[in-house]
Design a protein around this nucleic acid. Structure first.
Lengths: 136, 136
DNA sequence: ATAAACCTTGGACTATAGTCCAAGGTCAAG
DNA sequence: CTTGACCTTGGACTATAGTCCAAGGTTTAT
């Protein structure tokens, strides 16, 4: 059983983060001391690793909460449910990627047409194209 | 000269957004009526279009503020300065894209190994891999 | 003259994932 | 027995880009 400080140090988190996860219903330590110190068991720690692994693949705390619920009661859920969550998250991320790609393309185009020299920006092609309604 | 409501309607913004841009030092109407109504000139409107075009290419309000400063005083800046801003923003966006791509890959991998069937998730491969420390 | 539609301001609230702080209680070492 | 390191709580604050609200003033139309 570990106290919050130990657990935090071990996983390079702040104790505040662990308390935050508790408030978010992600990880509640199985025991409390008389003086209300948190004590985390091996299982709690395993749950924390689950959470951290989820974060690594880009899941939000909301997603993780849902996945934990499934993991807690696997028999209540089908593989389909789980896969669904993962796939819809992947799709959502793809949408964000697409959006950013189009930003990137637009910026690259702006940059490519610019001399980038040290002369005054009086006729800067970037500023000019941002000023004019070429594309609309 | 347009009142805030007209301008907002024309560009499909909320009047609040326009006021917000003013507070952010992006767009200050050139005139005020006796009763303190905002009046936007053609130039103000042009400036707004500049802002909206910047947003379209993914620039933040902070970026836009900087770009407007350059546009306002082109002779104070070089093409290099302008190009630099645009390119560094493009790089920053690329970093975000890379991060999301790696999330996407991880989720795709999880999803691919999962049957996605309607059976109970007792042995769900997704949950299993999130539980075990395979990759660390 | 009064209602509807507009305008003003400042301040609170949204989501996300924490981080930091203050005031106070607890515990181990010297 | 006190110091320092830990722990507790609740609440405020961060960034981003607005959005919404309340309380009140103005303008336009009837």
């Amino acid at each position: 059983m570990k106290k919050i400080g130990e657990l935090a140090k071990q996983y390079q988190l702040k104790t505040d983060t662990l308390r935050y996860y508790e408030k978010q219903q992600l990880l509640t330590p199985s025991h409390r001391s008389v003086s209300d110190y948190r004590f985390y068991t091996q299982l709690d720690e395993k749950r924390l690793r689950f959470i951290l692994r989820c974060k690594k693949v880009g899941l939000s705390l909301d997603d993780i909460r849902e996945l934990l619920r499934m993991d807690d009661q696997r028999s209540q859920w089908s593989c389909h449910d789980v896969k669904d969550l993962v796939e819809s998250k992947a799709k959502q991320i793809q949408t964000q990627i697409d959006r950013l790609e189009s930003f990137k393309d637009a910026l690259d185009t702006l940059g490519k047409n610019c001399c980038g020299g040290h002369e005054r920006a009086i006729n800067c092609s970037i500023l000019d194209s941002l000023e004019h309604d070429d594309d609309e």
